[in-house]
Amino acid sequence: MSGQRRVIVITGSSDGIGAEMARQLARAHGSSLALVLAARNQQALEAVAAECNAFGATSLVVKTDVGIESECRQLIQSAVQQFGRIDALMNNAGKSAQALFEEVDHLAWYEELMRINFWGSVWCTHAALPYLKASHGKIVAVSSLAGLMGVPGRTAYSSSKFAMCGFFECLRSEVKEAGISVTLAYPGVVATRIRYHGYNAAGQAAGSSGLKEDDAMSIEECASLIITGMNKGERDVVMTAKGKLGRWLKLLAPALVEKMTMAALKKEVRPH
Rank of each mutant, 00 (worst) to 15 (best):
M1T: 06
Q4V: 11
R6L: 15
T11Y: 09
G16A: 03
I17Y: 04
R23T: 09
L25D: 12
L25R: 12
S31N: 14
S32W: 11
L33F: 15
L35D: 07
V36L: 12
L37P: 00
A49D: 07
E51K: 14
E51N: 10
C52G: 08
C52I: 10
A54K: 13
T58I: 13
L60C: 11
V62F: 09
V66W: 08
E71H: 09
L75K: 10
Q77L: 12
Q77M: 14
R85E: 09
N92I: 02
L100G: 00
E103I: 00
L107C: 02
E111H: 10
I116Y: 02
L129V: 14
H136Y: 13
V140K: 07
V142D: 01
G147C: 04
R154Q: 12
K161L: 01
A163M: 04
G166H: 10
C170H: 10
S173R: 14
A178M: 11
I180Q: 11
V190T: 13
I194W: 02
Y199D: 12
G203N: 06
A205R: 15
S208R: 15
E213N: 02
S218Y: 03
A223I: 01
T228F: 00
N231E: 15
K232Y: 02
V237H: 05
K242C: 00
G243A: 03
K244I: 03
G246I: 02
W248C: 09
L249K: 03
P254Q: 06
P254S: 03
V257F: 09
M260W: 13
T261Q: 14
K267R: 09
E268K: 05
V269G: 03
R270N: 00
